[in-house]
Write a protein that binds this DNA or RNA. Structure first.
Length: 512
RNA sequence: GGCCCGUUCAUCUAUCGGUUAGGAUACCUGGUUUUCAUCCAGGACAGAGGGGUUCGACUCCCCUACGGGCUACCA
């Protein structure tokens, strides 16, 4: 039975890289018909951010990623799922290691540790608490036994450190990277239990994964260097035969320059790094979210899935169930991926294009109603149909094509000064008159009208297009002209045309 | 600095010793749309460098370079 956990730390909003980690975990779990668990790793009280846990759950819910067990659910036989609520469980495991001789008590102050590091650095050695330096520190290995007992009885501040073996290769198999070997001389005697009684990540992670019967640990590459430490812990606890499979995911990198994607990059480069908008509870600073910017969650998920994973057949469009079906851990890449804004747009456009018109209508109706109170509800579907293929975001319908719902508030003067000439007003007036007189206001009928007018005047119909378009929409681009006019209808088209003629006459230089 | 991981077009990537190194986005050109933000066709663009191994290396090994991660009583 496959059991997989996503174990974020509630130190702030979950960023898009974290969402991808959650996604890969989710896909792997569902592909293998396993159980997906949310575990909150809140062992660092100093870094705890209120609201972060709820934000994580809300973000993943928006994406469609759900859990079978977790702190927010009533189900689950391995509760609690918040490490702070499991605090009492960890001490016995750490002490068990001390008893077995794999760990020890340490009483060093911050100053002691500082001095040790400075001393080692000066003698050009790695500044770490290890098999060599531990012998000159204040711990249960250097202190007399009765002294240790005394300190323990007095409840002095103490940490428990892992006693690393000297010069031993620790190897483990990573599903994505293959065999990885690290020698213990490169590692240090990590603190397992902090002086406040809380476990560190390393202890809590291993103990909880064991207790919760986790079978696969899929996490970011930043954990690769400490994986051997975790392997050692499984070994010393006597759980090595139940050790989960490890898979370390590549990181998401900044689109420009170097380094891993960080909170600041998003708004600097014009795309969100967070799924949902987040307001920092202390600084009140707001970071934008994919949802609020207007992305479809399915598009975000699809894009994220492809950042570091691909199928052999080059397919790029996947629904969530299709992702589950196609996902294979072994096809996850080893190298970091840069986020590509243009590709994100493309994905979103693909998804908006697939949306049923009725759904788009339901979603934009409240906003259209508010922004353009006089819009025509009966023609909302037609308006959407006119723009659907071009929209990248659902909000484009009302933000980029306000003329579908309202007479233009302004006209693109650049285009007007280029395309307009002395004859234009006369032509527009004549066309207006002609339009008022026809019954059939279909696209073809209007086109015929314009063509006939052009022929009569020995002109190309083309030259009337831009003036008409600008008059009707205020803009140079948009849906096909005659289809647009048909959508607006005879009354509205004529109304807009005469309004534009009057308005522009007063605003244009007299020589036009 | 030390250790670990990585390195195919600008970007995401396919390739698992023999390919004209394929696709997608972006870009450029042409065509539709006499608008464009869609659509269609075409184009340019890549195996970091150097050594091996091999009949043959993008693919395997080594070195270098570059990139990233870790190096806390943070996760």
């Amino acid at each position: 039975m496959v059991r997989v956990r996503f174990a974020p730390s509630p130190t702030g909003p979950l960023h898009i890289g974290g969402v991808r980690t959650a996604l890969y975990n989710y896909l792997f779990t569902k592909k293998n018909k396993g159980t997906f668990i949310l575990r909150i790793e809140d062992t660092d009280q100093k870094r705890y951010v209120p609201g972060a846990e709820q934000y994580i759950i809300d973000s993943l819910t928006w994406c469609g990623i759900t859990f079978d067990e977790g702190p927010h659910l009533s189900s689950g036989e391995y509760a609690p799922y918040r490490q702070s609520e499991r605090k009492g469980m960890y001490k016995q495991y750490a002490e068990d290691l001390v008893k077995k001789g794999f760990a020890y008590y340490a009483y060093d102050t911050d100053e002691d540790l500082d001095n040790m590091r400075k001393r080692l650095e000066m003698s050009k050695m790695l500044p770490k608490y290890d098999a060599v330096s531990r012998s000159s520190m204040v711990n249960s290995l250097t202190l007399p036994a009765d002294e240790v007992q005394k300190r323990l009885a007095a409840n002095e501040d103490v940490v428990i450190r892992l006693k690393l073996p000297r010069n031993e290769d620790v190897r483990f198999f990573d599903e994505i990277r293959g065999w990885v070997v690290i020698n213990t001389t490169q590692m240090d005697d990590k603190v397992l239990l902090k002086s406040d009684g809380m476990p560190t990540y390393h202890l809590a992670n291993v103990v909880d994964d064991y207790l919760m019967k986790i079978t696969h640990v899929i996490r970011g590459e930043e954990w690769l260097p400490s994986a051997p430490l975790h392997v050692l812990l499984y070994r010393y606890f006597g759980w090595e035969d139940q050790m989960p499979v490890f898979a370390h995911l590549p990181l998401l990198l900044k689109p420009d320059g170097n380094g891993k994607l960080s909170k600041r990059d998003g708004d600097r480069l014009g795309f969100p790094v967070f799924p949902l908008q987040w307001q920092d509870p202390i600084t009140h600073e707001i970071s934008s979210g994919y949802k609020e910017v207007g992305y479809e969650s399915a598009a975000v998920l699809n894009m994220l899935a492809l950042l570091g994973w691909h199928t052999a057949d080059n397919r790029e469009l996947f629904s969530l169930p299709e992702l589950i079906d196609a996902f294979e851990l072994s096809r996850v890449n080893k190298s970091g991926a840069k986020f590509d804004l243009q590709k994100a747009y493309w994905f979103n456009q693909q998804y908006v294009n697939k949306l049923p018109i009725e759904e788009i209508a339901d979603r934009i109706r409240p906003i259209v109603k508010e922004k353009y109170p006089k819009y025509n509800e009966h023609k909302l579907n037609d308006a959407i149909a006119l723009m659907k293929e071009k929209a990248v975001f659902v909000k484009d319908f009302f933000e980029k094509a306000p003329y579908l719902f309202h007479i233009p508030a302004a006209y693109d003067m650049d285009v007007i000064t280029k395309k307009w000439n002395a004859q234009t007003f006369e032509d527009l007036n004549n066309l207006l008159l002609a339009m008022q007189s026809i019954e059939d206001f279909s696209a073809i009928s209007i086109e015929n009208l314009v063509t006939n007018y052009a022929q009569k005047n020995n002109q190309k119909p083309t030259q009337y297009f831009q003036p008409l378009r600008i008059s009707l929409t205020g803009e140079a681009g948009g849906p096909p002209l005659f289809e647009l006019m048909n959508y607006l209808g005879k009354a509205e088209s004529c109304n807009r045309l005469s309004f534009a003629i009057n308005k522009l006459k007063n605003h244009l230089p007299s020589e036009l």
